[in-house]
């Protein structure tokens, strides 16, 4: 029994990583109406940046901070330079982000090689907490904690601040927000950079858990897309619930049906879609 409780923690920790990346994805989709297919690439870049910073003898926390900032800045550059140029043409923007996944993934291969690497768990958290006969790695607890704090921050931002109000309004009716004199392009840039930064954060935190390998950007992208579909468009809450669900199912699925874990995740998505096509917390958008 105790093994399952420890595995539950692992599942939730993975879920938190999915939540961080899916939160950005869902909000970009909600506000900009763009499926950012390069989101997995931001995750990958976050990990690799942190890896590079750490190999320059920076400690984990500084590397984390820098990697997130650099990824977010890259997000700003990509949004300003490329995506913004196709303002209003959503399908083209999606295609553009798709082209970027090729470019970024191949550049990463070029710069960092194809060897599988990991980021070391920071000293501070390189221990475990024992309760009875159960051993919980401290780092996983930490990831869960960060995820929960982030969820609270996002909730606060969304419901208590002006920025959150603008973003909520943007999800509901983009044209109206623009008509009210809000600089929509600035909002887009901000949202995109924020999402990129979150994906970077998820990548760095995931480094010690998932490691880094070629193709991880695709794996994580697909999982987070499923989280977005399950959780509902533009909903942080949906991403939170969906991500934890997926994290748990994936981890437990790997124990019980090692060869079919992906199938179970997919079936969950199918069931959700059949019952609620707009996702768990999504609003019905007429389109």
């Amino acid at each position: 029994m105790s093994i399952y409780i420890v595995q539950l923690l692992t599942g939730v920790a993975y879920g938190m990583l999915y939540f961080m990346i899916a939160a950005g994805l869902t909000i970009i989709l909600g506000v900009m109406n763009v499926v950012n297919l390069a989101h997995g690439a931001f995750f990958l870049l976050g990990t690799y940046f942190a890896f590079t910073f750490m190999s320059l003898h920076l400690n984990f926390w500084l590397a984390l901070l820098l990697a997130v900032i650099v990824t977010a800045i890259l997000g700003i550059i990509i949004e300003k330079l490329l995506i913004n140029k196709l303002y209003g043409k959503e399908l083209e923007q999606v295609l553009l982000t798709f082209g970027l996944t090729f470019v970024i993934a191949d550049c990463a291969k070029w710069i960092w090689g194809t060897e599988m690497q990991t980021i070391a768990v920071p000293e501070l958290l390189n221990s475990s907490i024992t309760i009875g006969e159960m051993v919980f790695p401290a780092y996983r607890l930490f990831v869960v904690l960060v995820g929960c704090i982030l969820a609270v921050i996002l909730w606060y931002l969304e419901s208590r601040t002006r920025v959150g109000a603008i973003i909520r309004a943007g999800v509901d009716d983009r044209a109206m927000v623009a008509a009210l004199g809000i600089n929509v392009r600035l909002v887009f840039t901000g949202v995109f950079a924020f999402g990129a930064g979150l994906a970077g954060l998820s990548g760095v935190l995931g480094g010690p858990l998932i490691g880094m390998y070629t193709g991880m950007d695709s794996d994580i992208l697909v999982t987070s897309l499923i989280v977005v579909v399950i959780g509902g468009l533009g909903s942080w809450k949906g991403s939170f619930v969906g991500a934890i669900l997926i994290g748990l199912i994936e981890t437990l699925g790997k124990i019980w049906f090692p060869s079919l874990s992906m199938l179970i995740v997919f079936l969950l998505m199918v069931v959700v879609l059949m019952i609620r096509p707009q996702g768990l917390y999504g609003k019905v958008v007429s389109q």
Partner: peptide, 17 residues
């Protein structure tokens, strides 16, 4: 670096529109 070039071609093609 075929993938890189392919991606860049796609980005360009989309941008030119």
């Amino acid at each position: 670096r075929w993938q890189l070039i392919l991606g860049a071609i796609l980005v360009l093609l989309v941008l030119v529109g």
